[in-house]
Design a protein around this nucleic acid. Sequence first.
DNA 1: ATAATACATGAGCATATCTTCAGATATTGT
DNA 2: ACAATATCTGAAGATATGCTCATGTATTAT
Lengths: 159, 159
Amino acid sequence: MILILWLKLKASTTILFRLSTFSAPHMNKPRLPKTKVSPSVDAPGCDDYLVNLENVRQVQPEIVSIEKAQQMAEFFGTLADPSRLRLLSALAQQELCVCDLAAVAKMGESAVSHQLRVLRSQRLVKYRREGRNIYYSLADSHVMNLYAEVAEHLDEPAT
Amino acid sequence: MILILWLKLKASTTILFRLSTFSAPHMNKPRLPKTKVSPSVDAPGCDDYLVNLENVRQVQPEIVSIEKAQQMAEFFGTLADPSRLRLLSALAQQELCVCDLAAVAKMGESAVSHQLRVLRSQRLVKYRREGRNIYYSLADSHVMNLYAEVAEHLDEPAT
DNA sequence: ATAATACATGAGCATATCTTCAGATATTGT
DNA sequence: ACAATATCTGAAGATATGCTCATGTATTAT
């Protein structure tokens, strides 16, 4: 299974962040220090030499920073709520005002407003005023398509 | 900006769920009922005729079900934590045992174990036992690549 | 200006999440 | 079998999240 999370932000956006790479192309280990690291032992043991220092040294500089992980987590967090997904799903159909959204998603208007604020904060939606109503839509320069094939994954029995 | 969230689960996986569609291709409105729906008024008013019944009728049957939204939200939720993202990021480099992961991600071993359980529950990682150690890796048939270009989106000043 | 409407926002409560701590389970070496 | 080690798991506390309720703000109609 391939999990590609591809957030294309603007027409001209450079790839900013790469969480993982198929068959990691960096095999340059930073010359092992003077620590015996499981040359003959099967399971080196976590306690013997701190841990598998070899692996740790190799992997640690490559993993995502805490700050970036935090940002990404927040972004994913906005997609991690059924109500918000339903709102996005509705807006994907067409522009809607708050009370329409509330009716469509079967939520209270206040709840909708709160969630729209979250979506706004991640710039997933935009809005325009028309009289008393405020019409929301997917941030046109941002979200256009959102495909997911999650359900089968979820239904799939554990291997 | 285009937001494509594309979760490809198995080599042969049908598209299971489509949250939104670019320029929604379903323009067949289900023949408006006998409700005056803003034929002449600019802003129909949320209260006058319930809401914009036209819009609601059109959009409501298209939005994602609560159950599916719930499943998707849970899946996104597993990606909505910095620690888990960092663990995935590390495992994307290579197979690692729990204490290695703890060292790499600078987390407690118990915390790592807890989070690995979450990742396991979404089948994002697999594991194998080798002596006392349990080596985790990205679920080979599942997660292979995870690209993200989130940071620029996040840095981008609000329009 | 005043009332009414659509939406936003803050407080408060219920629930969920993440980490730590303590203890349980499983595997290895003696 | 027993001790040691790696990992797992449950409980508890701190924090975050999402909803409702009440109130605040902006726009329209009178």
